[in-house]
């Protein structure tokens, strides 16, 4: 039998994908979410992003979820790096560019993989004239961790790590947005439950791309309180990532869309840029941001 080169490649690809599919079919829920987070970390490492954050009250019209008011739109620039043991901690800073009245407001976050270390957030408000640390944990159904610039995204929604604080199980396999997905349930353990608003989360993970396409968050009474929808899944430096994330607050009927308009990774980020100093020292911040922008523009 004569095998052409293209035929050989096809066979190899088939064998490889079949083996990969078999291996992935045997992944546990924890392993799947580890890979999801590895993807997230890969995209956030040494990254400079430009983000449009839109928020509005929403409703249904013609069986379509739509804003019921003019969305409030903010433009952000965000810089992040991975650090710590095995680069599993993430430090990120976001600065508001628009609207003009909020220009310069910044938020700095440290997300630790270690469950023993609470994540940290700082915010600079020019009216106060100083950097404020923000308490990020919460422990009852009526509270949320710090909001990201008044949106429905909270610092908790942005976090990675601490998976060992959850019981993770695959509920079933199904489809979401036309893609094959694992439907994975995460339930926080006793320690984590004291710090999260979500008593249960159901995530729909793309089986091929290891991207969360949808996440349903439930409170302690079993009510679905928030839903995350991901779209515009694209490969960035070989890693699949969602460039549009929409968080729907089903209690407040409000949603926020985070459109990542530009993702630039492999950026040379100065070591001391992701510190509280950057929030308040405008000369330093703008000098470093200019260097970072020059790497991508």
């Amino acid at each position: 039998m004569r095998l052409t080169l293209s035929g050989l490649l096809l066979v190899v690809a088939f064998i490889t994908s079949t083996a990969q599919a078999q291996a992935e079919a045997q992944l546990s829920g924890r392993e799947i979410l580890d890979r999801v987070e590895d993807n997230q970390r890969a995209v956030s490492d040494a990254a400079f992003n430009r983000i449009q954050l839109s928020s509005c009250r929403f409703g249904l019209q013609n069986n379509q979820i739509t804003c019921a008011e003019r969305p409030r739109v903010k433009a952000l620039e965000s810089v992040s790096i991975n650090t710590g043991v095995d680069n599993r901690d993430t430090q990120s800073i976001s600065i508001v560019l628009e609207p003009a009245a909020e220009r310069g407001i910044g938020m700095l976050s440290y997300a630790y993989d270690d469950p023993e270390r609470d994540n940290e957030t700082w915010l600079y408000l020019s009216a106060l004239g100083q950097v404020k640390r923000i308490a990020s944990g919460n422990s009852d159904d009526d509270s949320e961790s710090a909001s990201l610039f008044g949106s429905e995204f909270t610092t908790e929604d942005q976090d990675t790590g601490k998976l060992e604080e959850y019981d993770i199980s695959i509920l079933e396999e199904g489809t979401e947005s036309g893609r094959d997905v694992w439907i994975i349930e995460t339930i926080p353990n006793e320690d984590r439950a004291r710090k999260t608003r979500y008593a249960r989360t159901v995530q729909y993970v793309d089986k091929e791309r290891f991207v969360v396409l949808r996440a349903d968050m439930y409170d302690r009474q079993g009510r679905e309180i928030k839903r995350l929808m991901a779209s515009r899944i694209e490969q960035v430096n070989g890693v699949w990532t969602a460039r549009s994330l929409t968080m729907m607050n089903l209690v407040a009927n409000r949603l926020s869309n985070m459109a990542i308009l530009e993702i630039n990774s492999g950026i040379d980020v100065p070591e001391n840029f992701l510190t509280p100093r950057t929030l308040t020292d405008v000369a330093f911040r703008e000098a470093e941001l200019s260097r970072i922008r020059a790497q991508v523009d």
Binding site: S54, L60, Q61, I65, A68, V73, R232, S244, L250
Partner: peptide
């Protein structure tokens, strides 16, 4: 973005969502 829309939790799961409504701000 009309004010007339209502939110019906019962119909929410069947509703479609299209994020293109947020396109066009042109901030960057």
């Amino acid at each position: 973005f009309p004010d007339s829309v209502e939110f019906d939790p019962g119909a929410f799961d069947d509703a479609a969502f299209d994020d293109s409504m947020f396109d066009g701000a042109g901030l960057f």
